[in-house]
């Protein structure tokens, strides 16, 4: 059972606002989906590996070399605000 408290806790974790009026909608939709995915309980996974890579790739490493970085202009164009070459945000603490 997914409670209102669960929904609010999750919303807080991912910083998504759910309006009071939407809580029961989300509660229902989430419950429906959770109910559907519970079908997996039928499958015995006792001896199955929890490491997964689609093509069984492993140990993909790059050499320790450097490359050119972005111009600050390319960062500035999308940033909320800047001060010289720093990204400036409102006091958020």
């Amino acid at each position: 059972m997914i409670t209102k408290k669960d929904i609010l806790h999750i919303a807080k974790l991912c910083n998504i606002k759910i309006e009071e009026s939407e809580i029961s909608k989300f509660q229902n939709q989430l419950a429906q989906i959770i109910d559907y995915i519970n079908i997996l309980n039928e499958v015995d996974t006792e001896d199955i590996d929890s490491f997964f890579e689609v093509n069984d790739l492993a140990t993909v490493l790059r050499e320790d070399t450097t490359d050119i970085s972005l111009d600050f202009d390319d960062i500035k164009i999308n940033a909320i605000n800047t001060d010289k070459t720093q990204i400036k945000v409102n006091k958020v603490l």
């Binding site: 997914i2 997996l40 499958v43």
Partner: peptide, 23 residues
């Protein structure tokens, strides 16, 4: 985002994410 946050949240990882990965 909410579904995914739920399935990863504390106490549910094994029941959902890890189970699904094994399946």
């Amino acid at each position: 985002i909410i579904i995914g946050t739920y399935t990863l949240s504390s106490g549910y990882y094994d029941a959902y994410f890890n189970k699904a990965l094994k399946v």
